[in-house]
Amino acid sequence: MFASCADPETLSGLSWLWCYLTTGKHLAFYGAFGTVLLLLAVTAPVALAFGFGGAVAARSRIAPLSWLGRAYIAVVRGVPDIAFFLFFVIALDQGIEWLRHKAKCPDWDQPIRQGSDFVVCAEAKMPLSTSAQWVHEVYGFWLAVFTFALVFGAFAANVLYGAMRAVPQAQIETAEAYGMTRRQVFRRITVPQMWVYALPGLSNLWMVLIKASPLLFLLGVEDIVYWARELGSTKTPQFTAYPHGDWRMWYFLFLLVFYLAFTRISEIVLDRIMLRLSHGQATLGSHKRTGPIGMNKAGPP
């Protein structure tokens, strides 16, 4: 990286440490923090959208749609996220390729499943195997976003479903008395009003999401935990210019501080938002929210 780092064996003390901490591997480690933050920033709104869809579906008067929404909430919430991540991404990837295969290679005559192999035509590969590595990485990132959003969307749906029901009945009735249609009531009363009820549950979900980010590693994104493990493990002199013992403790300590700081900042920001949202709202104790709490359970069974 730096010219002064050309021969690490001659270095000692701080200059050694400086060179050590600026190896390509460490830069990848620092970059992974960006990946994690970006993923969280992208996933949160997408998951919220999934959750909104799920909640609206679960409330629907059309029975099949309502079942679908409820089934989504019940099933995805019922499965531990790790178990879900372990097979879902491969399934999703194969599903996408299968669809592309059907669309792009209609005259393909070989079976797609050959023994344990999953074979689609070259044009259906996602991304194409000739694509540059960064394309593969971006694709992997979006698969991860989708999977995370699907899982956390189920929890968000549960929160929003409860929040929609918590909007005071009197307000709905007043709106109906003014002659609003169901759709108008939903758009003008329920949705704007529900946020204050949903925020505590949603902010808790955000906290859970932050702490789920080590699972990124399962989804094929090289995240901070992957690098911390890799960098911290014992390095023998044969394979590195910077040999060291088992330093995982220090790397994980660093991660611990990162997560604690991140949670704390989130708590402060969310408290501010809550304060603003509940401004003028006469809910009991809404002005002194003390921290996030588990999502309410008033969702569909």
Partner: peptide, 12 residues
Amino acid sequence: ARRRGGFRTIFR
């Protein structure tokens, strides 16, 4: 009561 109680906890 359960419903109301439940929500109250989460507003705090």
